[in-house]
Design a protein around this nucleic acid. Structure first.
Lengths: 354, 354
DNA sequence: CTGAAAGCGCTTACAG
DNA sequence: CTGAAAGCGCTTACAG
């Protein structure tokens, strides 16, 4: 910086008081006379004094900041409005409890490596790599942590959504409407394994799809079913449509595309409409999330509603509870929220002549 | 927290090495033998040791974190996708330069009061209260700062958009299309003054509107022109429509509503369509920003494009440049980006029988 | 009110 | 490699 930092010592000297007095002026003015406080504050402002949040945090062992550990870079993450809503929920709690929020992307590809770089009182972890569950359990002994949508059961506070049934019902409904050529637009994970080994929400949603298919004697292995992994963005959805519609054997062109998230579904919808398709007459499209966006598009999206903002709010509350709970054992809380199938206009009967 | 924090001292004792050795294992492993590093790292992991980012930051006087100073709470802010895009731009730079991003909402209603609470290396400031410009100038001597869309000219690095002309052209065009009853949906500011005294982007956009009106011998004072301030959210837009359409004298019902942001325009559009209006046949609607959203809705929005992501990117780059520039004077940079009028389908000729 | 002091957890130059 | 040491900027209990 241009100039050496102004410290409490500088202010004390200029104001002709002790360092303690300056500190008290900020932290406990009642210990000083009003005139002294006034004098100190004015001197401090003139000098451009700003208290060091770092030194305070070290000394008082508290930072009034929460960390949000992200599975990808900030720019990628925010392309999905899901995260915007999650952060809104967290933000509501930050607001009322007086915390700031630090967005912490992976460091050198690792979420865990990023942890020691952030000066926060605890972490909300989203989409953690599954294998590192044990590490998080150890971590949790010393750093408050809460996991949103954990990949597996874990002895650390969690907040998740019960997405076992509604997504299955959604696919079931599609098959009932006569769809047999079905495209699955899954969210890309880093694991790069086959779908039976997918973890976390992607694994659970795929399992729901498989169950629904099985009920009708179908399977993802069938030629009529196309599964493609794609980034969880609008562009990712558009890419999936183009692959499914233009690159596949025409015989297996989907009459319905099931997306693992609304933003992917919107990309599918946009690309489909740009190619002149009518939705749902030519192609049915479904999402997952029920973003506000999904009622702004035409047709409105059939999707599974999940309470994203509440998830963020509960996660933040759970984390702050841990931060404030100084000693002893706080019971490990696992919160589970419900979803809902939302039927709108983006789904119709399968076209006959296929 | 449950257990006392594990410190470098604990690890050193357990591993039978000096504190220095532990520190070197993390910061400069080349000073130790590979075996020692391995031993230390393993001991540290077993104990659940996490380096204190706070202590490091204090000692090394650097935090690898940028602060984004917000004019409102995190939850409110993120309801406007504008900020999502701005943060994406900042995030791109954070990604490539290895910074995390702290979202810093106002503290007790004041953006400036929030500054000392955040342990970051510098601040990107959005929508600062105008009167505090001098304070920021002093601050800037000791804390790196960059202002996005400053309310007035200020001797601190800035990044802004040249929004003088395109918005004026937009309104001009509306009047050319025969619109005389025009609603103005402005972004609510805290100042609560009359429009001639509005500051910053709201002031500049209103000035553009006034110029366009004047060209046609109209004025915001005319009964045909309704100006309403509203929060910069979808709901804020919906509220404006309802007020303008249902609460006003029928004679002055607008045939066009000019919004100061896309998200407001989308709210207007949604509420209008819900009431059965055809856009643009019954009502023309315009926005400002050109969010990705504005092409997803039907009809697509006529709006002014501004390069939001670039704005974020430039602001972050400018801030990091200051942070890394240790001594001496770095010239104060003022960057100005262009906008563009984007004509789409949400605007049409004024209805005849009004 | 003052002023000297300890200490938060680290980094880093130093002598060995 | 070790180990003692200083110091980043603060807070806070203490004796006066």
């Amino acid at each position: 910086m241009n100039v050496r930092r102004v410290t409490i010592k500088d202010v004390a000297e200029k104001a002709n008081v002790s360092k303690s007095a300056v500190s008290f002026a900020y932290n406990d003015p009642s210990k000083l006379s009003e005139a002294t406080v006034e004098h100190i504050m004015q001197t401090a402002e003139e000098m451009g004094y700003v208290r060091s949040a770092t030194a305070r945090a070290l000394r008082t062992n508290s930072s009034n900041a929460l960390g949000l550990l992200l599975p990808q870079g900030i720019d990628t993450i925010l392309q999905n409005p899901y995260y915007s809503l999650l952060i809104q929920g967290i933000g509501q709690v930050c607001q009322s409890e007086g915390y700031t929020l630090m967005l912490v992307p992976p460091l050198r590809g690792s979420m865990l490596k990023a942890i020691p770089t952030a000066a926060v009182s605890g972490f909300i972890i989203c989409g953690l790599e599954a294998e590192r569950a044990e590490v998080v359990e150890i971590l949790n002994k010393h750093v408050p942590v809460v996991i949103v949508d954990p990949a597996q059961s874990i002895n650390v506070p969690t907040v998740e959504v019960d997405d076992e049934h509604d997504f299955e019902d959604l696919v079931d409904r599609l098959i009932d409407l006569g769809h047999r050529n079905i495209g699955i637009a899954a969210i890309e994970t880093k694991s790069h394994t086959d779908y039976p080994r997918w973890q976390g929400i992607v694994g659970r949603r795929m399992a729901s799809v498989v169950r629904a298919l099985k009920k009708h004697n179908l399977s993802p292995e069938d030629k009529e079913i196309t599964v493609i992994e794609t980034p969880c963005t609008y562009q990712g959805g558009a890419d999936v449509f183009n692959k499914m519609w233009n690159d596949t054997n025409l015989e297996y062109r989907p009459t319905a595309i099931v997306s693992f998230s609304d933003i992917i579904a919107l990309g599918v919808l946009g690309a489909a409409q740009q190619q002149g398709l009518r939705v749902p007459e030519d192609l049915s499209i479904t999402g997952y999330d029920d973003l506000p966006l999904s009622t702004i598009c035409t047709p409105r999206l059939t999707t599974v509603h999940q309470p994203i903002t509440s998830k963020g709010r509960l996660a933040a509350e759970s984390l702050i509870e841990q931060i404030r709970f100084d000693e002893g054992a706080l019971p490990v809380s696992h919160k589970k929220l419900g979803t809902a199938l939302i039927v709108r206009e983006s789904v119709g009967a399968a076209p006959l002549n296929k």
